[in-house]
Design a protein around this nucleic acid. Structure first.
Lengths: 248, 248
DNA sequence: CCAAAAGTGTTACGTTTACACCCATGG
DNA sequence: CCATGGGTGTAAACGTAACACTTTTGG
């Protein structure tokens, strides 16, 4: 091995070749459902945050690392949902870089493992990576053409999330610790893309037994002030494990 | 490149390194749910049918190829359900072979993409592959310790299948073209691991609108002969796309 | 004091569950 | 001719959906 190689360890030795992870990071605020995107260098496209898998780590750990680097968050809800592997998905890879090793690396054919993450919007400090020059939230409705097949990945993640909501609770990772019932409902309506009855929603949510009503109400709001709630983490985790409803 | 290499193309050039697919193949007969397993050479373990991904194919296509080779079937219901990638899952890889290239290949660390398949039991002609010396059906209840983490993969596949049954029909790929209602019920009971009410099951199934009642009854059977049914493929495929029930 | 938003309750409806009766067949 | 399994129907229980009234607050 030459001194040059020793000085600059290659992507090819650090990571598993041909394998990547891509994360669809969902956040939620008053404007609706947001997704974290990166503006790639030397091109106009935006892309999902992604990364590669080290020789000695699992894909979950790789995705967690990506999330930590882009958002600053340590603990996030992360779920693998599908593998995207059509050879032609990488056909458009035409990276040029002064770093020849990086260039060769990026122009590989990649099999990517899709994850979606649910994160607390207001706690995220978006950070671009080495091949992007911006990292920021996009309202889901405003997302345009993304790099490669990232639009399909995003769409697929949203479908997986909607499916998962049928039998698992969401919200713990998307809302602040204290939240009101209307806020929780807004979250559900936004993700599901449909409006729900206010009273039935509240009853159903409470019947799940995951919520604790706090004695305080929201302040500084017009009209009648709603109560705050928080999740009972114990019950919430139990519901994540066991599921909420059954069909058979 | 040396003539030797030209004469014997390497696994390393034909396939993507570090990536494999493993298939949990479910079949169904009178004895219950069956799973297709391979008896590995030079060791007592049985394993799930698996394979590798060619440089220019997607993982679905790799899994389809594996299925075709092991079962002889062209069209099978195939569903990717999870990626297994913990580095230590491959830690036990200690293959020895006279083919040095193969040996080095098999001793890589692998990220495997888990698929489950639903196939018509009676149409399958199990075929071992080059690193196994038997391929046969096992009753799910009789499956013992499998190679590597294959027990976990099998368990996870069954969970995914049970979950999927909540909102998608199954049966088309697991039953012969004509089947009776008790047979269909047996299938559901076996996969779900619980007994169901005969009359409610029938009503529910018929209400889905996927079944066509045939004018003929089963022959050569003790007691009252049940009617045959078959799936309406059009409706069935529609249900696969759109799902059966909703929660919200 | 009124429009807008939130808290709470009730009724109607449909779906699922539980269960009963009759029919057909082979031993 | 009867035990076993299959075809069909109905009533009760449950959960969901639809909807009304009251309370609170800022403008």
């Amino acid at each position: 091995m030459s001194p040059t190689e020793l000085a600059a360890p290659s992507f090819f030795t650090e990571y598993l070749p041909h394998v990547s992870v891509d994360c669809v990071v969902f956040g939620f605020d008053a404007k609706g459902l947001q997704v974290l995107l990166l503006k790639m260098k030397h091109c106009d496209d935006w892309a999902l945050p992604g990364g590669f898998v080290r020789q000695q780590e699992g894909v979950e750990s790789a995705a967690t690392r990506v999330l930590q680097e882009r958002t600053g968050l340590e603990q996030v809800f992360l779920q693998q949902f599908r593998v995207f592997s059509e050879p032609r998905r990488s056909a458009a890879n035409k990276w040029t870089s002064e770093n020849e090793d990086l260039q060769a690396w990026l122009n590989q054919r990649f099999i990517t493992i899709g994850f979606y993450a649910l994160v607390p919007f207001e706690k995220v400090a978006p950070q671009p990576d080495s091949i992007s020059d911006a990292c920021s939230w996009w309202n889901l409705a405003d997302v345009g053409k993304l790099m490669l097949d990232h639009n399909a990945i995003l769409h697929s993640a949203l479908e997986a999330l909607r499916l998962q909501m049928r039998y698992q609770p969401i919200g713990y990772n998307l809302l602040p610790e204290k939240f009101t019932m209307p806020e929780l409902q807004k979250l559900y309506e936004t993700v599901l893309g449909q409006t729900l009855d206010r009273r039935n929603f509240q009853r159903r949510m409470l019947d799940f037994g995951l919520l604790e009503k706090l004695p305080e109400r929201k302040t500084g709001v017009a009209h009648k002030a709603p109560f705050y709630y928080r999740f009972n983490k114990t019950q919430y985790d139990k519901a994540l494990e066991e599921g909420l409803a059954g069909g058979w």
